[in-house]
Amino acid sequence: MEYSGKLPTSNVNVSKRTPLQELLILLGGVLGICLIFYLCLGWAVDYSIQHISPEEENELYALMKLPAGEEEKAAGRTLAVQTLLKELQKCAPLPYQVSINVSDSKQVNAVAFPGGHILVFSGLLDQVSSENELVFVLGHELGHFKHRDHLRSLGRGLVLWVISLFLLGPDNDVGDFLFSALGVANRTHSRQQESAADEYALEVLNCHYGHVGGSTKFFEHLRDNNQTPEILKYYSTHPSDQKRIDDLNALAIKKNYKVASVKPWVVAAN
């Protein structure tokens, strides 16, 4: 017997494929599966939302604690906004008991909470130059209720979370990665919702005043004050202000809405 001591010419125990190739194939597969899952469940959520009555929704959310914000001191303004909203509801019939509160905050924003509750920040009231502008913002929030977007985004978020939990278990690097990837898709969806709410607001505005003057004022102001870098738009949940102005103008022309002078927003100081 003799020992030859020859070494093998190639390593048979290691695959020829490079790790990078492997990564691309696997990532493609995972993202594809997640997207299909997400779309299917997303549709299911959208469908089932139609079957949840506003009463059930109210009961559901009564169980949760929602941020009410600090009440504004100037009660007169709150009262004025509430009166305005009551008038608006003639133009926007909703199956909700819509309530509105003014929160003392510098933010120029309004938020639609589940259960038909709108929170307006006083920064918004300080900034609006006309009643029409305010009506547009309120109409936008009413549009969210009309389309039940608050339920939708909640449902989709839940779907995303369930997928990640199912596939990977809690606290997983891969899960976090997928979450941020699909989050971008979710934001595109959210931008569509915002545009739809804008459209509804325009209708409300036209119904209330008979014209759509002042509809773009709010976004014009935002655009002039806010310099968001171009790259961040991809991550934004709302469409860019300029795009919203353009869309609104185009829509007003398409629907033959008139534009007339605006009514000033004055509240007796108290």
Binding site: N13, V14, S15, R17, P19, E22, L23, L26, L27, G29, V30, L167, L168, N172, D173, V174
Partner: peptide, 19 residues
């Protein structure tokens, strides 16, 4: 490679990352 193997865990099959 750990990440690669975790991804592979979803599909099953040859885990070339650990080879």
């Amino acid at each position: 490679k750990r990440f690669l193997a975790a991804l592979r865990n979803i599909f099953g099959g040859r885990v070339s990352a650990y080879e």
